[in-house]
């Protein structure tokens, strides 16, 4: 049916005709395979979206509807689970913890990482490769390797169950990420711009602060967003290093699974609230997500 419509539009007007001719130029018969592609695309979209929509719809169902077999697809949404988690649970507190931890850890990573990246991008010094190698290696170390020592160190420093410990610990993955992505940002700035400022009499610090930093800001913002996403999603460190009062949202959500009688509606409402901000952020930085995940090996 769809190919018929397409054929109809092809006859109808010039724009469609041009598109069609482009297609012909690319050497592909339009009808053959087009329907197959359409089906494949729809399956792909469905596979990605259906579980997510299932989570959202369960968060809006009454408890009885959750257990219905066959599943209920059309129902009158209720916000009782959202009301319940926001008035009567530790979820708001855990979201606040997540927000504070993720924001401060990302900012700290930017403050520490941006100058370091600039130095790596613009200066030559001995041992630079070893330093760089070591910074990047941090991406490859499994968190469980350092979880035990972090736990003991935090206990000795009375930092267990504080937001501070998470802010610091999250630097283990945030700082390498910021440094790595920012080196590229600073290197992309044409050297002539900085040299012009030197000729005008600006010192190196001034050049960094007033020329390089502003020019790299969009890139820095993107790495900050990625830091925020990774920190917000982190689970293992938060699980072993915090309890009730400093607990972050993912740990709080996982807690719904313990005890008897799982409250599915509230659990899915909490999940929806947790996922919403990072998904939006990640969509904003989507072009850089892959770069961040591969430490720049794939652009």
């Amino acid at each position: 049916m769809t190919s018929q419509t397409a054929a109809a539009t092809e006859l109808a007007g010039t724009p469609a005709a041009t598109v069609a001719s482009t297609r012909r130029r690319r050497g592909r018969p339009f009808n053959a395979g087009a329907a197959g592609e359409l089906v494949a695309l729809l399956v792909l979209i469905g596979v990605i979206l259906v579980p997510i929509l299932w989570m959202i719809s369960t968060s809006l169902k009454s408890t009885n509807q959750t257990f219905a077999v066959p599943p209920v697809f059309i129902f009158e949404p209720t916000f009782e689970h959202y009301r319940s988690i926001f008035t009567n649970s530790n979820v708001p507190n855990s979201l606040l913890n997540s927000l504070i931890v993720a924001t401060l850890s990302s900012l700290l990573a930017l403050v520490l990482g941006a100058p370091a990246a600039y130095a790596m991008a613009r200066f030559e010094f001995r041992g630079k490769f070893d330093l760089w190698f070591w910074i990047i290696s941090n991406r490859f170390i499994s968190p469980i390797v350092v979880a035990v020592p972090f736990f003991l160190l935090a206990r000795d420093l009375s930092l267990l169950n504080t937001r501070t410990v998470l802010i610091l610990v999250y630097l283990t993955f945030n700082l390498p990420l910021v440094i790595w992505l920012s080196i590229d940002q600073f290197r992309a700035i044409p050297r002539e711009i900085e040299q012009a400022a030197f000729i005008d009499g600006a010192g190196p610090w001034r050049v960094f602060a007033t020329i390089a930093l502003p020019l790299a800001t969009p890139g820095l913002a993107v790495s900050g967003i990625l830091c925020f996403v990774f920190s917000w999603n982190e689970f293992l460190f938060a699980l072993v290093l915090t309890q009730e009062q400093a607990r972050t949202a993912p740990v709080e959500a996982a807690n719904f699974m313990t005890g008897f009688g799982v409250r599915w509606g509230e659990m899915m409402a909490t999940g929806t609230v947790i996922v919403l901000p990072v998904v939006l952020f990640a969509a904003l930085a989507s072009r850089y997500l892959v770069r961040g995940l591969t430490m720049g090996a794939v652009k």
Binding site: V229, N233, F235, P250, A254, G271, L293
Partner: peptide, 13 residues
């Protein structure tokens, strides 16, 4: 979306 989704929430889902 799946890449960015909190793995814990994926587990709960």
């Amino acid at each position: 979306l799946p890449i960015a989704m909190t793995p814990t929430v994926v587990g709960l889902l």
